[in-house]
Write a protein that binds this DNA or RNA. Structure first.
Lengths: 178, 178
DNA sequence: CCATCGATGTCCGAAAACCGCGAGCGCGCA
DNA sequence: TGCGCGCTCGCGGTTTTCGGACATCGATGG
């Protein structure tokens, strides 16, 4: 591939670890992950854009996205709802990720329910795979998908963080509706 | 892959069939093949630039390249020597293709000789593969590579055309040195 | 003299493995 | 009987692996 996409990279602290944020110059979010897993994230980028297909230039609060993430963590959960995400991925994955964004904050859904919603009720386990391949943690809320019996099953960032995020969302929601 | 390279496409007749010419907007030749094999050529482009990674806009004599090709066929063989080529391909393939351009017009070289020249004397058969994967026929003169015993072996455009091209080159050269 | 074989890089198709699931079943335990 | 736990197996998209084909040629053995 001849061309090179130039992305912007920033980092920020959260109560549960440092976050890496990748954005493009049009203000679209391209990837989000924990610094701890930056290697894995870069590998995913390589997969999607090619080995030399992109470059990461350090930046401060690109497109206001870093600030938006901080806002979410500080308690204004709906901050990330309007945020514009742009990713690659197979058609199936894109279907799944789109369905994830429709899960309202504070709610959880089972893998099979997601499968049903994208019209492939049997592709339950594949939904799990697609979840794991999600480049944009938190904003595409793969943490809101849990086992049919309510168990947390798995999370790329670690079950602990999944639990924290769900707590965070239900906690704040409870406070605001009270 | 996000963006799309916009190439220019033109066609022209030759004594041995119609030629397709793909150029970029900087005047570099990107691909050349016979109209008869346009499908195969597009597949190669897809391989190199991605399925939706490029687009072909019809153009007339882009970068003067069509005219240059016509000049070659009309007898000014060195017309294609200076012409700028830009292609993708693996490191090995690029080595091979570079070596091909060093074969002087009118001369022929064996596959094993090419292998020797790129420093991998044992990769003889692989040179054959790389030859077949050459996107830029004629200009990158894969037709000047023949069997160790002088037989024509193979040619993507058909042995007949290979023979014609070699005849053409030796004929004109003989005439000019006489 | 002729047939066979091995080395070499790349692509392609087929097949298998991999999983962030979930339903069904058997079993142990009151 | 009734419940819960854990094992097993089928599910389906994606990735990985593997084998074969090929624009050759020189060495070997019959």
């Amino acid at each position: 591939m001849a061309e090179t996409l130039r992305f912007l990279i920033d980092k920020t602290d959260t109560p549960i670890g440092e976050l890496v944020i990748i954005a493009d110059r049009d203000g679209h979010l391209r990837a989000v992950d924990w610094t701890e897993h930056e290697g894995r994230m870069r590998q995913l980028l390589r997969l999607h854009y090619g080995a030399g297909g992109f470059e990461l230039d350090p930046a401060r609060n690109p497109g206001g996205l870093t600030e938006t993430m901080r806002t979410y963590f500080s308690g204004r959960l709906d901050a990330i709802d309007a945020l514009s995400v742009r990713t690659e991925g197979t058609p199936f994955q894109r279907d799944v990720w789109a369905a994830l964004r429709d899960i309202p904050c504070g709610a959880t859904v089972s893998y099979s329910e997601v499968a049903k919603r994208i019209g492939r009720p049997a592709a339950v386990r594949a939904v799990g795979m697609a979840n794991g391949a999600n480049p944009v943690g938190i904003v595409v809320p793969c943490h809101r998908v849990v086992g049919a019996n309510g168990s947390l099953t798995g999370y790329g960032g670690g079950i602990e963080r999944k639990r924290w995020l769900l707590d965070h969302e239900s906690r704040v929601r409870r406070a605001s509706t009270a």
